[in-house]
Design a protein around this nucleic acid. Structure first.
Lengths: 115, 115
DNA sequence: GGCTTATGCAACCTTCGGGTTGCACATTAC
DNA sequence: GTAATGTGCAACCCGAAGGTTGCATAAGCC
């Protein structure tokens, strides 16, 4: 049987809040999709067709950057943004940790109740 | 090879924003952990030891409820809250969809570049 | 009945988030 | 050099988010 998550895991889990928060906005999810499809793009390109200002997109990118979801590199006068896949994997792992906690809890309950 | 996500999938993905947002707060993640460990609990019990007011916790629970993360049932004068596991699975699925989009994008890029 | 406990509702405060406009500054194109 | 393009920075607006206090109400305990 799998061992229950230790204190370290729970602590790490709390750190994932900013990552989930970064995914918790429609516009940012659109940006994620866009970055997936186009691989990498400048702010101007990312802004086109969104219906909001370049500055708005810029702020979203900063939020995503602060949680590690995207990285950027300067190329000439442009700044190119790309998804950080490792961070996506983290999100995946976090959700699985929670699910696993839940499953473990169910298992423990069954042990007690044994209906 | 796996087919790329269609418009329907992308649309569904945007709907996942509230779910991620519900997970994007430290206090709410603590609540999730607590609900995992204890299975189900009343507001009072969930509030104990958090350092904030019962009302604050109540609001967090409402946010989580609006995104389908938790359900509640009345039992006597108490209201019992529990995690909705299906919604957790949804979160899991959404993250995987994004990861998959990413993988597909990489694959397409390779097809073009063929370095 | 009367006290305690568990919750719900409403008003309020303060900070933050998403958005805008305006301007300054590089970099590329001609 | 000059014009156009791509960004960055700062101030501002407004509504929502996280939190509080105060009061009302319903259910259990004695």
């Amino acid at each position: 049987m799998r061992k229950r998550p230790n204190r370290r895991t729970a602590f790490e889990l709390l750190d994932s809040a900013p990552l989930f928060a970064a995914l918790g906005d429609q516009m940012r999810l659109r940006l994620v999709s866009r970055l997936c499809e186009q691989g990498a793009a400048s702010i101007s390109r990312l802004t086109a067709g969104t219906g909001v200002t370049r500055q708005a997109i810029s702020k979203h990118l900063r939020v995503m950057h602060n949680s590690g979801l995207v990285d950027s590199t300067r190329r000439g006068r442009e700044r190119i943004w790309r998804l950080n896949q490792r961070r996506l994997q983290d999100a995946r792992r976090y959700v699985e940790i929670i699910s696993q906690q839940w499953d473990d809890a169910l298992a423990r309950l069954r042990t007690f109740v044994e209906d």
